[in-house]
Each structure stands twice: as structure tokens, then as C-alpha cells.
């Protein structure tokens, strides 16, 4: 049981990061019906941006008081979100808007995003020495357990990640359902030409959608970098997983992305380690990714539009 709970907490931690990234995919898919393949690089740039900012304030090995730690955390989240939003905005301007204005075929968007993804990740590698194991400075004891649930020790950083991610997801949900911006996003998602007739500036709305998704992705980059290590190619695997999570929940559906992300994180940690007796499991951790993709394929075979389905969608 203890093992099970430990893996559950681990899965929730990873899953909440997947969910934050998946929201970026799903938001963009909602307004454009396009997969933003460069979103994983938005995530990566969030980690680098917040590292540069935090590095100015704290040093490795420092011990800060709890309020200082929370200040640094907020600073990291904000800077990560800011950099992520900036990169996502530039991405939309460079790789999406010119193609939209030319009426390019759908796959051209995918390829321009892939080109952008190669470009950004390698540019970051060039500028930051292509190291694969960068670490944030450690300014508090991240792994100290703060909470025990049914025998599982929840460490500080895990708690921070899960709580922040949930908070951000909740505020995004409010933003989309309750504000004027959210309404215009939903309008564009449902029927762009009609939304344009209703006085919504489509270009601006799309741009802002990218910015929101980028901010979430950038913040996730900070959380990921703080919990694990970061590098210029860190975006690839979480990006693929988050994309899978978005599809799992029903792409274009915000709550679907949250559920899909959490579910994927939990499943890929729990299933390979069953029966949780510390022996490595029947399946084994080396099959983690296979389990994740098999679950995805099975769900899609039986529910072709994901768990929650595409909201406001016609039957596919």
C-alpha cells in the first residue's frame, strides 16, 4: 500500500505537469484545429528563462526562510510564465500567422511548427552549452517530507507542484468560462467566421490564446526544472506525453486536458509497478512509455474522441 501511494503521488506530480503542458496544446487546438508541435520548446524556454532570473537572486546551497522560498518560487513561476508567453507569442507571429494569411494547407502549419521546434531547441543548446543535466540552485530541502497520506511521504516539492498546478488549472478554467477574453476564445473555437462577424478580432484572440497556453507551459517548465533537471532537449518527451494527454482527454477540451494529464501521469507510474511490492513490478519501469501509449491507443479505439470528447464538436 505504501508503495502504491508513493507511486500515486509521483504520478500525480508528473501528471499535473503534463496537464499544464497539455493545456497549451488543447487551447491552440481549440482555436486553430492545429497541433502546436513547438509547444514543447515553449516549455523548455520557460525553464531556461526562470533559471536565468532565479540565478540572479539565489545561489546554490543557500538556506532561505519559508517566506523567502515562497517568494523565489513565485518569482520563478512568474518569470517562467513570462518567458513562455513571450516565446509562444513570437511563435504564433512567425510560424502561424504568415501561413494563415496565405491560406496554407493544414500540414504546412505542422511542419512550420516542427521547424520552429528544431530551431528553438537547438538555439537554446547553442547559447547554453548543450549541457544535459542543468540544475536549479538548491535553496531549500526539496525532498523533505511534509505530509503523510496512507503511508506515502509527500515531499515539499511534490506538494508545491501539485498545488500550483491545480491552482493554475482552476484559474484557467475560470478565465475561459467567465471573462470576456474567454468568451472570445470560445467563440473563435466554435465558429471563427461567425465570431469575426460578432466583432471579435480573430488574430488578436489567437495570439492571446497562444500567450495563455505559453504562460502555463513556461510555468510548467519552471516546475519541471526545479523538480528534475533541465536541458535544451527536455521538452521533447514531456511534450509528446502532454500531447498524448490532451488527446486522451479529448483535444480541444480544457477539462479533458487536465484529466488526461493527471490520468496519464498516474497510469504510467502505477501500471508498470503493479503489484507494488517493491520488486519492480510485473511489467517493469522500462515499459513506462509503452504502457502510456497502449493506454492511449486503447482509449482512442473505444472512445475515438477521447475521454470527455471534443466539446461543442459535431460527431466525428
Amino acid at each position: 500500500m505504501t508503495d502504491f501511494m508513493n507511486y500515486l503521488v509521483l504520478g500525480l506530480t508528473r501528471g499535473s505537469m503534463y496537464a499544464l503542458i497539455a493545456l497549451g496544446y488543447t487551447l491552440v487546438y481549440g482555436v486553430l484545429q492545429l497541433i502546436n508541435f513547438a509547444h514543447s520548446e515553449v516549455f523548455m524556454s520557460g525553464a531556461f528563462g526562470s533559471y536565468l532570473v532565479i540565478g540572479m537572486f539565489v545561489h546554490d546551497g543557500q538556506h532561505l526562510a519559508w517566506w523567502q522560498v515562497s517568494l523565489v518560487m513565485i518569482l520563478g513561476l512568474l518569470s517562467g510564465a513570462l518567458v513562455g508567453a513571450g516565446v509562444a507569442w513570437a511563435l504564433e507571429r512567425v510560424a502561424y500567422r504568415p501561413l494563415r494569411q496565405r491560406g496554407a494547407p493544414k500540414l504546412a502549419f505542422l511542419i512550420s511548427a516542427i521547424g520552429m521546434s528544431f530551431f528553438l531547441s537547438q538555439l537554446a543548446g547553442k547559447l547554453f552549452n548543450r549541457l544535459s543535466q542543468n540544475q536549479f540552485p538548491s535553496y531549500f530541502d526539496q525532498n523533505k517530507a511534509v505530509l503523510h497520506i496512507l503511508g506515502a511521504a509527500v515531499s515539499r516539492i511534490q506538494l508545491i507542484v501539485i498545488v500550483t498546478a491545480l491552482l493554475m488549472m482552476f484559474s484557467l478554467d475560470r478565465l475561459v468560462s467567465g471573462t470576456k477574453l474567454g468568451r472570445s476564445i470560445r467563440g473563435v473555437a466554435e465558429d471563427a467566421p461567425t465570431a469575426a462577424l460578432m466583432g471579435i478580432d480573430i488574430d488578436k484572440t489567437i495570439s492571446r490564446t497562444f500567450i495563455i497556453g505559453g504562460a502555463l507551459g513556461g510555468a510548467a517548465g519552471f516546475l519541471f526544472g526545479t523538480t528534475f533537471v533541465f536541458s535544451n532537449i527536455m521538452g521533447f518527451i514531456p511534450g509528446v506525453k502532454a500531447f498524448a494527454a490532451a488527446v486522451l482527454g479529448g483535444i480541444g477540451n480544457i477539462r479533458g486536458a487536465m484529466i488526461g494529464g493527471l490520468l496519464l501521469g498516474v497510469v504510467e507510474n502505477i501500471v508498470p509497478t503493479a503489484p507494488w511490492d517493491g520488486s519492480g513490478g510485473w511489467i517493469g519501469l522500462q515499459w513506462t512509455d509503452v504502457v502510456a501509449f497502449v493506454v492511449l491507443i486503447l482509449v482512442l479505439v473505444f472512445r475515438p474522441t477521447g475521454i470527455l470528447g471534443e466539446r461543442l464538436g459535431r460527431a466525428a
Binding site: 488543447t26 487551447l27 487546438y29 481549440g30 482555436v31 486553430l32 484545429q33 494563415r100 494569411q101 496565405r102 491560406g103 494547407p105 493544414k106 478554467d173 475561459v176 468560462s177 474567454g182 468568451r183 476564445i185 470560445r186 473563435v188 473555437a189 466554435e190 465558429d191 471563427a192 467566421p193 461567425t194 469575426a196 480573430i202 488574430d203 489567437i206 480541444g252 477540451n253 480544457i254 477539462r255 471534443e310 466539446r311 461543442l312 464538436g313 459535431r314 466525428a316
Partner: peptide, 26 residues
């Protein structure tokens, strides 16, 4: 098939394919 010899239709309407998409909570 896609463009013929006419100019592309206005960027505004071809910008986003109409159809299903993201939903909020309403």
C-alpha cells in the same frame, strides 16, 4: 483543387476552419 486560379479567399475567413473546437463550461 484548392486554389484554382482565383485569388485565395479572404484571409479572414480562411484563417480558421470552422468546425468543432474547444469548449468552455457553458
Amino acid at each position: 483543387e484548392l486554389h484554382g486560379f482565383d485569388d485565395a479567399s479572404s484571409a479572414e475567413t480562411s484563417a480558421v476552419p470552422a468546425g468543432e473546437g474547444m469548449g468552455g463550461t457553458k
